[in-house]
């Protein structure tokens, strides 16, 4: 039906990072390359005078702090606005909040929002870059980028890797972004979980995807295992028994042994020890969970540098 539509002059979202899905492999690689040049320990003046506004409608520990630290490491100032304690509580609309933050002089807005598509709505109506720090069940693009960055610190390339994602894929914006990114870079991806959390339709999200219900089958020969958090707050109404989930899908040392010996064990955090993974797995030699958090800073530095147009 697209042929019937007159080409509409859509704002180009210059500098915005809304999702991994529309990005090309080249875009992703160049952003990762830029991230490798970033040094969080060496302060830079690259974004001096720039104001980065962090607008968080949902709680966050690692994403929020690493964006703040990334912006400050580049010399930008940051202001944090939380939905609680702001005019959002008085019923101000998302766009009016966005216009207000633009008017006070923000140069870029980093937004986390419980509704899928909220960052896109802002980017459609603002003339400054919008960076998606997680929207509803849709995407969490900087998480996928930092995961790719972490994988590339340990493996030469992503193409050809066997990546297994275990857990609640349906509700996970982390999973959607990671799947798009890894698929674009040529990984073979296996998704594993019960049907309520991993519907068959998941396999249509990208290329190089397969689904299995057996954790053991999914793990055999994996180069990378990504465990997702059980989002208890989203499970209302689903017929999921936690003891049953733990029995079938919890990552244990025994299960992890089915993967390649040099497997990377990843988790976007926050982790719930004893639920989706055991205490021992979280801290095992193959675990790069803490590294992922650390790598969030250079990756977000690159994203901000690109958004604010200071890439040469």
């Amino acid at each position: 039906m697209q042929s019937l539509v007159q080409s509409k002059n859509r704002r180009a979202h210059r500098g915005s990072l809304l999702a991994i899905e529309p990005m090309s492999a080249i875009d992703i690689k160049s952003l990762l390359q830029l991230a490798r040049k970033m040094n969080p320990l060496k302060p830079s003046a690259r974004l001096r005078g720039k104001r980065v506004l962090l607008l968080f409608y949902e709680p966050s520990t690692r994403t929020r702090t690493s964006f703040e630290i990334a912006a400050q490491a580049l010399g930008a100032s940051t202001t944090l606005v939380l939905s609680s304690g702001s005019s959002v509580e008085k019923g101000e609309s998302l766009l009016d909040t966005a216009y207000t933050l633009r008017a006070v002089g923000s140069d870029a807005i980093v937004v986390r929002h419980p509704h899928s598509g909220a960052p896109q709505l802002m980017a459609d109506h603002l003339d400054i870059p919008v960076i998606n720090a997680g929207d509803g069940m849709h995407e969490h693009p900087t998480q996928a980028l930092l995961d790719a960055y972490t994988i590339l610190e340990h493996k030469k390339k992503i193409a050809g890797l066997e990546v297994t994602v275990v857990g609640d894929i349906y509700h996970s914006r982390v999973a959607r972004s990671a799947i798009h990114l890894l698929s674009k870079l040529g990984a073979q991806i296996t998704l594993c979980g019960p049907p309520e959390l991993l519907p068959e339709v998941s396999a249509t999200l990208a290329e190089n995807l397969r689904i299995t219900r057996s954790c053991e089958e999914a793990l055999r020969g994996a180069d990378v295992v990504m465990v997702l958090r059980m989002q208890r707050e989203r499970l209302a109404g689903l017929k999921i028994s936690l003891p049953d989930y733990i029995a079938r899908y919890q990552m244990t040392l025994g299960r992890l042994r089915l993967a390649k010996p040099d497997v990377l064990l990843m988790h976007p955090g926050p982790i719930i020890r004893g639920l989706e993974l055991t205490w021992e797995v979280a801290d095992c030699a193959q675990s790069v969970i803490v590294e992922e958090v650390k790598n969030g800073v250079p990756v977000r530095m690159a994203v901000l540098a690109q958004a604010l147009g200071t890439v040469n």
């Binding site: 598509g117 995407e139 349906y170 959607r176 249509t204």
Partner: peptide, 9 residues
């Protein structure tokens, strides 16, 4: 369907 899964809706 596919579209709702993709959009996270």
């Amino acid at each position: 369907g596919r579209a709702s899964f993709r959009l996270g809706l």
